[in-house]
Amino acid sequence: MNVIARSLGLTWVAEYDHEHDRAASALSGFWLFMMSDLIIFGLMFATYVTMLTPMSFAGGPTPKELFELPGAALETAALLTSTYTFGMASLAIKFDRGLGKVKSWLLITLALGLVFLALEIREFAHMVAEGAVPQRSGFLSAFFGLVPLHGVHVTAGVTWLVMMLIQINRTGLTGSAKSRIARLALFWHFLDLIWVGIFSVVYLGGIA
């Protein structure tokens, strides 16, 4: 039954399990959003790679001069650990381990997300102080198009996480809260997946 109810358009099957069907189709819709988002990121990556020629550096700073391994490693560690802690929150919901556990894992995830954002903002501030601003060269325009776009997504995720914490604090783990957290979990894991591309292409590719 679940397999059929998961399908998007087959609403007649789901008459007797309305709530589950709503949650499943909301999740399918969210998959569609994420895949469109993936295409936006894909094109930003492509733009970035075309801007890696000496001409696009326009005499400005090159990736080798700008990027530092330790900073990228710390950001990666924060985001990867946060994806694991969000997984623990999802498990706590799935196996009814209690509201307290869910809240603590979500709070740890939130803290790690904030650590990631703080590290990233510090890195951008450092770059701007060195004169590496978006209008300096085509390469820097592409960099500030790609990496902060991911940062904005993480900011959205963090905001969403705060709102979910407020919601479950008020009403407990209702059906709608669970369904929203399931989508937030997808979003959060997806952002970590995008980050794998960013640290590989931008940071490691730039420094290597």
Binding site: N2, L38, G42, H189, F190
Partner: peptide, 29 residues
């Protein structure tokens, strides 16, 4: 392991969606 999309029949929709989007992204890039 995190998005839980594998080769099982229950995850076919997500798998096809991802493969299709992956094909689009690959073509465009």
């Amino acid at each position: 392991y995190f998005l839980h999309v594998d080769l099982s029949p229950e995850r076919r929709e997500e798998l096809y969606l991802m493969l299709f989007s992956g094909a689009l992204v690959t073509l465009m890039i």
